[in-house]
Design a binder for these strands. Structure first.
Lengths: 354, 354
DNA sequence: CCAGTCCGTGAAATCGTTTTCAGGACCTTA
DNA sequence: TAAGGTCCTGAAAACGATTTCACGGACTGG
């Protein structure tokens, strides 16, 4: 039977009223030095810790942030949650974490659960930020929230993200500059998510600007087993004039694609160049290192918490915060034999800071 | 201003008392069909959702599980948390997630925070399960908890884990059977954690059983940058009679080591074989695939939740649940030239189920 | 020296539920 | 018809904190 020591116990021990104990603990009103000392002593002796529940019931606000993400298994989301957790901890808050596991309809249910817990605010990564009944509900009930990874077209929705279209545009241009003409576009299971669409748009725009034909995106199961990927890629890369490069919509997929291509007997990057998106840590640990767009995922989580607190405490208006991305060169991306100009390994193209 | 519709609003709308509303919602007592229908209608119309806080204050128990892990950045922990989340969701519970970020002393503080939130129970991965004041405190206050990844020597502490020593023992024996005689032991920053110790014990035991000299463990920064790893490994592998294999205490480290060895000009596995521990998904996606001990991390999270609920609801006694591991062969581990017997790629040695 | 402030404190209301207790309506049985 | 059960239902008391209100005592200033 936990919680036998309540504020009342402390009050008795210190010889004062519970109101005074509350005041001492929260410094919510001045108290005399004598009573202050007695209360603190009692708190220490009894090991008293005020119940967050009692507190929350009165104030109708917990020190808790609700989080909804698709899955923890993707290091991208894991990293943003890590950032949120650390930023929340700095502010004496904890995270109520839920994941949809890509189950449609789960978003609404999870948000409801979190709202029932009186969270101070929400941080979400949703499938589609444009048309989303759940977000409409939050807007209507005036519950503060911030999106992460999503790029809401709807202004008035707070979000922290990178410019996915610009990033893929830049990455694609780099590949084109390295001499690639046929660049396959391989998409993960996010094909329906808003950010996946934005990424694809960037690719298309860059190809068209260069007067090249954008390829039809090939959808692959995100981190499906390598054999299945090899099979799916065989048709494309064993055709007459195969692509010399593959742009993958995320890093997990890219790593798997590198493995699959090798299984098929292609050398990376000699026969086929590969690039990913996200900048997960592992991409730099494998050999050859993965060329990718480095996005500050952990920082995104931190910034999301900061923005959420600004909205809650200072009534800041919701805004979209674009974080800078970096093109990270890597061993998997090399110039073609007939490259117009060799890509310098040292170059790092960074988006202009917001 | 959220939460304007309380149980009282519903009662008014349905024309009954709040007690009856509560009874209908929780089916805690029989109610007439008429009133039942009216209440349900009112609930639906008003979009009422009972406040978990009000409920918790009365029952002194939330539908929340507290989680403490070292870091979300390690996919091993991310995977177990994913398992916990899914198992908790099945039981209408949510996760209050915290991470120590390897900061000493954070464990105690985080547990205190979680207890103040009246969590129904706790799931922890701690640095040392043997001597741990925080766990003693939980024992004393009779707050149910389950350890994950830890192997508590202290009986009476609930835990879900694999037999780390047996697993490393088996892995080391496999490497020895492949002909390796000098097998380096590379440890991550977990060097001080109890499971890292158990893993090292298994390695030592296998080496000694085979009449071989165990190497002094080389400590590397877990996922430090590849160059620093290359530097650290240079001395060991460029010596007179270098090891022909490296056993790494976890997969992230192993992947990085593979990269570092290649940077140094070694071929993997031709010159040096490498094996890891954990069985993270990415190990199977890279090329060559990583030889490792596959541990059911996600399942561990699920089982931990199941065990915790058994303890909470059925008063089950705390117990240690050992989950089976699997030796996963991979391209990074090959026989030496003078191997006693070639390792068959198809073999999978599995620990006996518990 | 008195009136007016200010400061520290306690009593009590409140937050949204669950749960106990008691009572009224209805039915059964003698 | 009266006695005794069942069933439902409502009033009210918790749960553990915060916060408003009022009050007594000690200042301050004229």
């Amino acid at each position: 039977m936990p919680r036998i020591v309540t504020i009342r116990t402390v009050a008795e021990r210190a010889g004062c009223s519970i109101a005074t104990v509350s005041r001492v603990i929260n410094r919510s009103a001045p108290t005399s030095a004598a009573v202050d000392a007695r209360v603190r002593a009692a708190v220490a002796e009894l090991g008293f810790r005020p119940s967050e529940i009692g507190r929350a019931l009165k104030t109708l606000r917990t020190r808790t942030l609700g989080v909804v993400i698709p899955s923890l298994t993707n290091p991208v989301f894991a990293a943003s949650v890590a950032g949120m957790q650390s930023a929340a901890r700095e502010r004496q808050h904890t995270l109520l974490l839920t994941a949809t596991d890509y189950e449609p309809g789960a978003e609404a249910e999870l948000v409801e659960t979190l709202v029932a817990q009186n969270v101070a605010g929400l941080i979400l990564t949703v499938a589609d930020a444009a048309e989303n009944a759940t977000l409409d509900l939050l807007d209507a009930e005036d519950i503060p929230y911030v999106l992460v990874h999503n790029e809401p077209p709807h202004p008035g929705r707070a979000a922290v993200c990178v410019d996915n279209a610009a990033a893929t545009f830049a990455l694609t241009e780099t590949m084109i500059a390295a001499g690639h003409r046929r660049i396959a576009y391989l998409a993960g299971r996010f094909a329906t998510s808003d950010r996946a669409r934005r990424r694809h748009e960037g690719y298309r725009a860059a190809m068209e600007k260069a007067g090249l034909e954008p390829e039809v995106p090939l959808e692959l199961d995100y981190l499906g087993d390598a054999p299945s990927h090899a099979e799916a890629l065989a048709g494309l890369f064993r055709a007459g004039a195969p692509p010399t490069a593959a742009l993958c919509s995320n890093d997990l997929l890219a790593l798997s694609v590198v493995g699959a291509l090798r299984t098929l007997g292609f050398r990376v990057p000699d026969d086929v160049s590969v690039a990913g998106f996200d900048g997960i840590a592992l991409g730099g640990a494998v050999h050859p290192t993965l060329a990718t767009v480095d996005t500050p995922t952990r920082l995104m989580g931190e910034r999301a918490v900061a923005l959420l607190f600004a909205m809650i405490n200072e009534g800041a208006a919701p805004r979209v915060e674009h974080l800078p991305f970096t093109l990270r060169p890597g061993g998997t991306l090399a110039p073609t034999a007939r490259a117009d100009q060799p890509a310098s390994q040292g170059d790092r193209i960074t988006s202009s800071p917001p």
